[in-house]
């Protein structure tokens, strides 16, 4: 896993908001097709770390390479980078004025330059893929939270990304709607999608992750395969966190 040409390599990334350090020398790496799950208490910097990968947040120190290219370099075309890195948000952030199809088609149409018809076809195919083939013309406000998040996933997939970032994709959902979103994500795992996921869904993390990275206070406390981290955590802090989470499950 620590071979020289890892697909995504995060090395000693640090970030401050003003005087407050939110990330401190965070390092991990993943290969193509890997699923890495970032866990940790709220405020631990997981979401910020995720956003540094597609430069929605700017890291001040360290290095992030994606497919051999330095992401943090000032020469990096961020729009180009984001074309290749899909992102799914906690609060869905669907474009409120567009139908499900419109939401998914906007990127292919305006960013990839597909024709109107081509973009619609691609959108329909992606919505079909997340099980929303019957909601093509629905507006976000007409969909349930679970359906909205699946549109969000389809929107990211439509750009044919080589890496998918999930920022607490189920945290804003009612419990009975979480399953349908996790199911779609499992499907992506099965298809071999490379995924970096921030989540509190421990059973999901355990089932699909190749590696779990436990962050606390902006630092990587511990990382390793799920069996190791969940069964025999090396650090006492990891154990405490997992216990607290488990008691809420």
């Amino acid at each position: 896993m620590s071979d020289a040409d890892a697909f995504l390599r995060v090395t000693d990334v640090s970030k401050w908001y003003g005087d407050e350090q939110v990330l401190e020398d965070v390092s991990f790496e993943m290969d193509r097709g890997d699923v890495t799950v970032l866990i940790g208490p709220s405020g631990s910097g997981k979401s910020t770390m995720l956003r540094c990968v597609n430069r929605l947040a700017e890291a001040q120190e360290g290095s992030i390479t994606l497919d051999g290219e330095e992401v943090l370099s000032p020469d990096t075309d961020v729009d180009e980078l984001r074309r290749e890195v899909g992102m799914v948000f906690q609060s869905f952030n669907l474009f409120a004025h567009l139908t499900a199809t419109g939401n998914v088609a906007l990127g292919p149409r305006r960013v990839l330059g597909l024709s109107e018809d081509g973009a619609r076809d691609r959108a329909a195919a992606q919505l079909e893929r997340v099980g929303l083939g019957d909601q093509l013309d629905s507006y976000p406000a007409e969909l349930s939270g679970g359906q909205q998040q699946r549109v969000g996933i389809a929107r990211a997939l439509a750009m044919e990304p080589k890496l998918m970032l999930f920022d607490e994709p189920t945290s804003a959902l009612d419990p009975e709607l979480i399953g349908e979103v996790l199911e779609v994500m499992r499907g992506l795992v099965d298809e071999g999608m490379t995924m970096l996921v921030v989540t509190h869904e421990m059973s999901f993390a355990r089932a699909v992750a190749d590696e779990i990275v436990f962050l606390d206070d902006g630092r990587v406390v511990e990382r390793g395969p799920p069996e190791q981290l969940f069964e025999r955590p090396e650090k006492e802090r990891t154990g405490r966190f997992l216990e607290r989470i488990a008691s809420h499950d």
């Binding site: 597609n54 929605l56 729009d79 180009e80 984001r82 074309r83 899909g86 992102m87 948000f89 609060s91 952030n93 669907l94 474009f95 409120a96 906007l106 990127g107 305006r110 960013v111 929107r155 990211a156 750009m159």
Partner: peptide
């Protein structure tokens, strides 16, 4: 909502 522009940027729109 600010998330709207973030989502736009996330799919590669300037």
């Amino acid at each position: 909502d600010e998330g709207q522009i973030t989502a736009g940027r996330a799919i590669g729109l300037s």
